[in-house]
Design a protein around this nucleic acid. Structure first.
Lengths: 237, 237
DNA sequence: GGTTGTTTTTTGTCTATACATTAAATCCGA
DNA sequence: TCGGATTTAATGTATAGACAAAAAACAACC
């Protein structure tokens, strides 16, 4: 196993922590001791520990030492997929069917008000189709002040999710996942009886302090799920 | 703003990439140029870029240079909360009500078979209660070969989720989130009509190659949601 | 033309050292 | 005993230099 030394030190302790040999609160050897143990310079040890600290596995406190991180505030990596790509990967046929696209001011809706910042809003609604059947509907709001290009963009051939991903840089995002019953128009577009369970994905994006987009997607409960992973290669797959 | 130099270099490029100034595929200056530009040593530049590379924002190739990473398969950090703690944080009352707890061999169920590995299984079912009303039900399987302590653990006062979090080390986990309709027993335990939409959270954990646990949780659609974040402080909140 | 070495550029790792920063521990005087 | 100043042990940042490793670019050869 030819592994850089700092990598070996890192995975050594990672294993011991995740495997339970080192419990939260336990103190690790100080850098001096580790240089002895591994026969290397302090920078090498430091690099290994810095990476573990960045990953949140350990906490380093000056003068006190290095400790296994307290609360296993257990966080996982959620892959937010490009729906079209994901569907095609499974060998199925994907299509986006636009429902509506209007440029207007913010209405009564609280979300709209927050997003608008007294500017114009582009509303884009559509349905994701798989092999001719609806998979999900989406209701999207884009701030026309933050993304002026949206007004003239060609969004009929490309699903707006993909377009936005390519053209709109953002610095922060929040995704909220819940379960709701499909109602009214939503149920009709999805072609299911009202009350059918759907996975509701809401996403808000910001650029700095400025709100950029809001999306609400409703997916058929039995046709779509989201997966989050933790562990070796969590983000690599 | 007193910020370490490597941190400044890092956030400099992070900003330019997330802000769109640097597009995917663009090449960054080589380390030599950056040492000139920032008037520092190569190790400092290297540290900054290594962190960005670890975060997946850039890709570094020997002899070729450093490039902004390709269309970011957009991944976010999902916080998997401790239900009890989360509820109490909102000032509400939390209780766990056990339904069933049996030690047995694996049955017909495929999931059970995968988990068992010809060993015994501990099945633990219960309801999460908030202010006296059901929030969710959970159906849990724990490999008694991987976690022998489970057999004698006191799980009536402590919700098994918390107990496991404390006592069972694992190295890999996968969470699958979908929307389903509550049916039969599940609906009864939740106190809702059959067919009500629920958020279904399934989690599998491994220790190395060995399966450790499987959980299936059903939460009332209108009372529970999960949040994932991306951006400054994504894991810190 | 295509294959196979060879060079060279760029990142990867590591060392040894220096000084800064922080906070725990200690000391000391009122 | 308390509270504040001082010491000191640990991490944090940074430097300058060395050699390793990979892969793009080039050259040579059949």
């Amino acid at each position: 196993m030819k592994m850089p030394l700092h990598e070996r030190i890192r995975s050594d302790f990672e294993g011991r922590i995740l495997g339970g040999e080192l419990a939260p609160g336990d103190r690790l050897p100080i850098e001096q001791e580790l240089m002895q143990e591994y026969g290397c310079s302090r920078m090498t040890v430091n690099k290994a520990l810095s990476v573990l600290a960045a990953a949140g596995l350990i906490v380093r406190r000056k003068r006190a030492g290095t400790f296994v991180a307290r609360p296993r505030v257990h966080s996982m990596v959620l892959d937010v997929p490009d729906i079209a790509a994901q569907v095609r990967e499974r060998g199925q046929d994907y299509a986006y069917r636009p429902i509506r696209r209007v440029l207007r001011g913010a209405g009564e809706d609280q979300e709209e008000a927050l997003l608008a910042g007294c500017g114009a809003l582009m509303q884009i609604d559509g349905v994701h189709m798989v092999d001719g059947a609806p998979l999900g509907v989406e209701f999207r709001l884009v701030s026309a002040t933050a993304v002026p290009e949206i007004v003239r963009a060609d969004l009929d051939s490309v699903p707006p999710g993909s377009w936005l991903l390519q053209h709109v840089p953002w610095t922060e995002a929040e995704t909220r996942i819940s379960a709701v019953a499909a109602l009214g128009d939503e149920a009709r577009w999805l072609g299911v009886p009202a009350g059918s369970p759907c996975l509701c994905v809401e996403r808000r994006t910001w650029r700095g302090a400025e709100r950029v987009t809001y999306v609400r997607q409703l997916f058929l409960g039995d046709a779509y799920d989201m997966v989050a992973r933790f562990g070796p290669g969590a983000s690599a797959r």
